[in-house]
C-alpha cells in the first residue's frame, strides 16, 4: 500500500536523510568550519551563532529534500494506481485554453497521462502554476511575481469543438476576488445564469459570443446542475477548441481528491459526448437517445 497523500512518509524520509553519514559529516564539518571562521573574523558572538545557523540551514535543506522525495513517491503511487504514465512537454498544452496560457510565466509538475475511467478517452493530469509579473518601479528593486496554482485534468474532445466554442465555469469570486488576476479579462465573453439559485451563487458561468445558448442549457440539464452544485471539489471547467480542462484551485496532494477530479472530468466529458451524439442523431433524423 502506497502513501495516500504527498506528505505521508515525509517524516520518515527526513529522519532517514538526517541519519545518513554524509549528512552527519556535513553537519559536523559545517558547524566546525562556521565556529572557526566565526571566531576568527567575528568574535565570540559570531563563533556561537555561526554553527547554529549552519546546522539550521542544513536541516532545512534536508527537510526540503525529504518533502520532495515524499511528494515524488506519492505521485509515482498515483500513477501506478491509475495506470498512468508521465508525459513530456506539457508546454504544448499552453495553447489550448485561456487558463493554461495565463500569466507571464508557467510551470508544470507531476505530469501524468492515462485512461479516463471507462470512457475510452485519455486524460492528462498535472499540477500547474502560472505567474504574473508586476514590473518594478525602478531598476533597483526586482519585479514582483505572484503565482497561482491549480490541479488540472485535460481531455481532448475534438468532436465537441463546434458545439462548445467557449465555455468557462469557475467558482464565483467574492468581492475581494476581483482584486486577483483574471485570465479571462479582455475576452469577449458573456455571463449566463442558469435556473438554479444555488448553482448561480456557487459558480460563475461565462460563454463565448458564438456559443449557442440553447445547446448550453441542454448540456446543463437538471441532473448536471445538481451534480455541480453538490460536488465536494467544486470542479471548474474550461472548454475551448476541443480541449476540456477540469481543474481546481491549489495543488491536490491526496489520492482521494485526485480520483474525484478524474471522475469529475469523466462525468463532464461524458456529458459532452452525449450532447454531441444527441445532436448527430437529431441531424440524421433518428430519435435522440434518452
Amino acid at each position: 500500500m502506497g502513501p495516500t497523500n504527498a506528505n505521508a512518509g515525509r517524516g520518515d524520509w527526513f529522519r532517514a536523510t538526517l541519519g545518513r553519514p554524509v549528512t552527519i559529516t556535513m553537519l559536523v564539518l559545517g558547524a566546525s568550519a562556521a565556529l572557526v571562521l566565526g571566531a576568527a573574523f567575528g568574535g565570540p558572538a559570531a563563533a556561537a551563532l555561526a554553527p547554529v545557523a549552519v546546522v539550521v540551514a542544513i536541516v532545512a535543506i534536508v527537510w526540503w529534500i525529504a518533502d520532495r522525495k515524499a511528494e515524488n513517491v506519492f505521485w509515482k503511487h498515483v500513477a501506478d494506481s491509475l495506470g498512468f504514465e508521465p508525459f513530456f512537454d506539457p508546454t504544448a498544452l499552453e495553447t489550448t485554453t485561456p487558463l493554461l496560457h495565463a500569466g507571464d510565466r508557467r510551470s508544470w509538475k507531476h505530469e501524468l497521462m492515462g485512461p479516463l475511467g471507462e470512457s475510452g478517452l485519455t486524460a492528462r493530469l498535472a499540477q500547474y502554476r502560472y505567474e504574473v509579473r508586476e514590473e518594478s518601479a525602478n531598476d533597483k528593486t526586482p519585479d514582483k511575481w505572484t503565482s497561482y496554482r491549480y490541479t488540472i485534468c485535460l481531455v481532448e474532445l475534438e468532436s465537441g469543438m463546434p458545439m462548445f466554442p467557449g465555455l468557462y465555469l469557475r467558482e464565483r469570486r467574492g468581492l475581494l476576488g476581483g482584486l486577483d488576476h483574471d485570465w479571462l479579462d479582455g475576452r469577449r465573453l458573456s455571463k449566463v445564469e442558469l435556473e438554479s439559485t444555488e448553482f448561480n451563487e456557487t459558480y460563475e458561468l461565462q460563454i463565448a459570443s458564438q456559443q449557442d445558448e440553447g445547446r448550453l442549457r441542454e448540456f446543463f440539464d437538471p441532473k448536471t446542475i445538481v451534480w455541480f452544485s453538490e460536488h465536494p471539489l467544486r470542479p471548474h471547467v474550461e472548454f475551448r477548441a476541443g480541449f476540456l480542462v477540469v481543474y481546481v484551485p491549489g495543488y491536490i496532494e491526496d489520492l482521494g481528491r485526485v480520483v474525484w477530479l478524474l471522475e469529475a472530468a469523466e462525468r463532464i466529458a461524458g456529458r459532452v459526448v452525449a450532447e454531441v451524439g444527441e445532436a448527430h442523431a437529431t441531424v440524421a433524423g433518428e430519435p435522440a437517445p434518452g
Partner: peptide, 25 residues
C-alpha cells in the same frame, strides 16, 4: 424504460432545483 428512468432522475433533479429556489425566495 431506460428513457423513463433517465427522465425520472431529471424530474427529481429539476424538483430539487425548484424547491431550493422556492426556499431561497
Amino acid at each position: 424504460m431506460a428513457q423513463l428512468s433517465e427522465l425520472e432522475d431529471q424530474i427529481q433533479a429539476a424538483r430539487r432545483i425548484f424547491n431550493a429556489n422556492v426556499n431561497s425566495y
